[in-house]
Design a protein around this nucleic acid. Structure first.
Lengths: 340, 340
DNA sequence: CCGGTTCTTTAAACCGGTTTCATTATACAA
DNA sequence: TTGTATAATGAAACCGGTTTAAAGAACCGG
């Protein structure tokens, strides 16, 4: 039932040459007579022969696969970066293998088992900063690795593409302070989390720096952290906005969380931006739809750039490792204004 | 510099057995003495040995790869289905290769080159219904294929998971008619498109059926089709809503397009739902956020189910092909009401 | 006409596993 | 004690390519 696949030896026999010659003919080796090549190619075409990929891979040691490791595929910011990766890779000869990480265990597994020469030729890691323990795993991996939206100071041999989240957090907060706000809340992800997500933590750091620089006292009741997502952000916002002295502005560590804040405001009958200013982070599509003021990151671009660096390194392994900080840009829309 | 990888023969030598025995020990073959296995496994662990995947693949003829072919990764409904796929596959031993299709040429290429035994063990196709010419390619492919949100009557040997878009379109329209609307617009994708996307076309068909059944005349000026996306939908809606006799309700073929309609309404100063009712399709996250009435599809579920069927077929190739129609459900939120 | 190149080609080794087949050791029944 | 079934193992073939080493053929100048 399953028709036997044609092998290089079949072609060789029919063309009256040796398998080695067929291989050379196919791979445009200069070590083959043009006439012979033509004869071989004729047979190849006639039988519709395509070399077995796995055999090629075993023989050459190249997999022609790249892997991308992403955490929760669910977050729109992650998907957006992935789009950049996929679309840049579309025209290359590499296949892209996706590894989704949904719990810390998987993560350790991935770092251990994926970056191996026999599995892939290169790896992209999105939004997962390696821990100190993981550094050696990555530093000594057998294949080139590029970190996107992730970094570790010790990994000087890897390409790293990041944004300056501390500066971003500071800029957002300074903008709110500039509008006249002094009671500014922050809602983000847990600073300590099993995935070592650093962006929320860094943005919070920038937030505190800006407050301090402006001589505004940091108030713990204006700071909330919890699981990523709308629901938790909404709950936190409600808690914060029903304090005796509520904040007049809330800075959310992501657009998704900002949406939760907007929902809370609506629920409490607070007008945005008259009663409450809200700022997000990322500028995913929903931010534009809702008219959310936010800090734009070049998400798609980060994926694109990561692939470029990876391909370049695959071509020339001596490529100098790059540490690139992508710019951010505050996009002011309709959810921010002066305090009431 | 590159440290030579450990092979099964190294392990064999150190453990004092033959490579064959090591292979059996690793693969839990019953043909190996428990003591021997333990001895071997000790060495394996000590040297941190992991079998070379490519060699395994070549030897077994299994690639341990599955491919998923998706069109524009950009559409949220596609991403949602993909999430179902990725998350269901997470715990399996298969790797997932993503093929993004952005133009018709790539598409033909994919159908021709991907479903080969030496590349993958199985294929998922999302939202791309094969054309008549492509049917033989898929029917005679060397590996099992599952169509998700896609179908073709001639492909009786493949699993197919679809929704009844005609019925869905009809249901939405009937709902609007039930509210009292008679001037109902439709905005969707081109019925004839190079990708053979069928969902918008089918929903439009249901829309016309419902109108006809209710004795409402179909008006061409109430029907618009164009490139998927908010922008075009917004423009079409504006055109439609500035007609001398404007529709009192608009049915958009997707939530993304419904958002465009909402933007148009806002721009024109029309209140939703008092002046205009809007219904979307899919129930992606943004629909919930915006309170959009929409026809819910189990997007995530469709991906999950597709993977289940594929895995089952890989385990038992004799599995009967399934043609499954997933249910839809009208979710009524805040964008629909009686006509003004 | 001979030795040395250059150009082609073949045979065989190799990549690193799995699997078949033969062999040996052990257990058990007659 | 012998014969036979059973369990465990090793040797070798195999998967389907690529690549190296060796060899043959053609051509050159001297």
């Amino acid at each position: 039932m399953v028709k036997k696949a044609i092998t290089i030896r079949d072609i060789a026999k029919i063309a009256g040459v040796s398998p080695g010659t067929v291989s050379r003919a196919i791979n445009n080796s200069p070590l083959v007579n043009p006439e012979t090549r033509q004869k071989v190619m004729q047979v190849v075409k006639a039988l519709n022969y395509v070399p077995n990929r796995m055999a090629q891979r075993l023989a050459t040691g190249k997999t022609l696969n790249l892997a991308v490791i992403v955490p929760f595929f669910t977050a729109p910011s992650v998907t957006e970066r992935l789009k950049g990766v996929v679309s840049t890779l579309a025209r290359s000869r590499y296949d892209l293998i996706i590894h989704n990480i949904e719990d810390p265990e998987q993560r350790a597994d991935c770092f251990r088992t994926i970056p191996r020469q026999d599995r892939v030729d290169g790896v992209l890691v999105i939004s997962i900063s390696p821990t100190d323990e993981e550094v050696p795993l990555l530093a000594e991996a057998g294949v080139p690795i590029v970190l996107i939206d992730a970094h570790h100071p010790a990994l000087t041999t890897l390409h790293q593409i990041t944004v300056d989240d501390v500066a971003g957090g500071r800029a957002v907060t300074e903008y709110l302070i500039g509008l006249g706000h002094t009671r500014i809340g922050f809602i983000g992800d847990p600073a300590n989390n099993p995935f070592n997500f650093t962006s929320s933590r860094d943005r919070a750091r920038g937030y505190r720096q800006a407050l301090e620089a402006a001589g505004i006292l940091y108030r713990p009741e204006y700071y909330a952290e919890g699981p990523h997502g709308r629901r938790y952000a909404r709950e936190s916002a409600i808690k914060m906005l029903t304090l005796p002295e509520r904040p007049t502005a809330i800075f959310a560590a992501s657009d998704v969380q900002a949406v939760g804040v907007l929902e809370a405001a609506r629920e409490l009958g607070l007008r945005v931006p008259q009663d409450l200013s809200v700022v997000g982070y990322d500028d995913v599509e929903i931010a534009e739809i809702l008219g959310l003021t936010t800090m734009r990151q070049r998400l798609f671009e980060s994926g694109r750039r990561g692939v470029e660096l990876l391909l370049k390194t695959l071509e020339d392994p001596e490529t100098e490792p790059v540490y690139e900080v992508l710019p951010t840009e505050l996009v002011i829309r309709d959810t921010t204004g002066p305090p009431p």
